[in-house]
Structure formats: structure tokens, C-alpha cells
Computed example of a mutant assay.
Amino acid sequence: KGVSLVGGEHQTPVPVGCGMPPPLEFGDISTVVKNNYDHGETVEYFCQTYYTLDGQTHKTCSNGQWTGEMRCLRPCTVTLDDMRRNNIGLKYKPDSKMYSPHKDFLEFNCTTGSPDGRLAMRQQCIDGVMLLPSCQ
């Protein structure tokens, strides 16, 4: 990869194209993927359901290299069993399993007892991790 030279005495550099764009964990490309791309061509990425795109939406072929940074941040999953173990329930949703996207908040209440005070009853999902409060 690099620069190929064409022409006679002036040796004008011609930008090199790229191969297939790199995969995105928990994501995909929004169009049909080609084997080769010209310098300057772009591809658009998106994340799977419940995942949150962090960074740019496109990668660009730039002289043989793909440029543009992004990642898919994981959602949090809270199950009925998780909540039962901590004597809590979802304050506003009766679902048995809840998906919460990155940066989303869930609010819990005690099913029995009162909060143990170690964690707030309102918690935020951060890249697939949500701490659960407990009641006793």
C-alpha cells in the first residue's frame, strides 16, 4: 500500500484505493460491501438493535487506509431474576426483561423492605454495565 507513480518526468502520485472495509463489532455496514474501493469513497456503519454508535458514522478510504473511528456500545440487560435477587423491581415498567441502551437510566423500587443505601435507586447503563441497587 502507499503511492504509485505514473507519468513521465513529473512523477505525479496517484492515491491508492482500499480493500474491503474493516468489520465493526456489534455493527454492520449500511450498503452492500465491495471488494475494492477508490480513494475518497466512504462506507456508512450502524450498530445492531439496542447498541449505541459512539464516534463517526462513516469510514473513508484514504490512500490505501480506512480512516474514521467508531464503536458500538453495549446495552444493559436487567432480568426478573436479577431484580428478584436484590428485592427490587422496575419503577415504571413491568417487563420481565429490560434492555437499556448506553447512557439510559432505569429507576428501581423495593419489592420488599427498604433500600440498603449502597447504591441509588436510579442507575445508568454504561457500555453494558448497570449496577443494581438492593433492598433488605
Rank of each mutant, 00 (worst) to 15 (best):
G55W: 07
T111L: 11
S114T: 14
L131M: 04
R122T: 15
G68D: 04
D28M: 07
I126E: 10
K34T: 03
Y51M: 13
M70L: 15
G89K: 14
I88M: 01
R85Y: 05
R84G: 04
C61A: 10
E41Q: 13
G19Y: 05
D81T: 09
Q65C: 02
P15D: 05
G113C: 02
K1Y: 07
D54R: 13
P133L: 03
Q48G: 12
R118E: 08
E25T: 08
M121R: 06
S134Y: 01
I88H: 03
I126V: 14
G68R: 10
A120G: 15
P94D: 15
V16I: 12
R85L: 13
L90E: 01
G89D: 01
G89L: 03
R84W: 04
C135H: 07
T60M: 09
G128R: 11
D81F: 04
V14A: 05
C18S: 00
C18H: 00
L132D: 05
L73C: 13
G27A: 11
C110N: 07
P13K: 05
L80F: 10
E107W: 00
K93N: 15
L132Q: 04
C135S: 05
V14P: 06
T77K: 09
C47S: 08
S134M: 00
F26I: 06
T12L: 13
D54Q: 14
F46K: 07
G55T: 11
I126W: 07
G55Y: 02
F105P: 06
V6S: 08
S30V: 01
V32K: 06
F105Q: 14
L90C: 08
E107Q: 15
E25V: 08
L53S: 13
V33K: 07
M130P: 04
V129I: 14
Q124Y: 04
K97P: 00
S4I: 11
Q11S: 12
S96V: 11
T111D: 01
P101Y: 00
F46M: 04
D28V: 02
R74P: 10
V129W: 03
Y50L: 14
L90M: 09
L53C: 12
D38F: 10
F105H: 13
N86E: 04
K59R: 15
N36L: 12
G68L: 11
F108V: 06
M98E: 13
K34I: 05
D82E: 10
T67K: 11
S134Q: 10
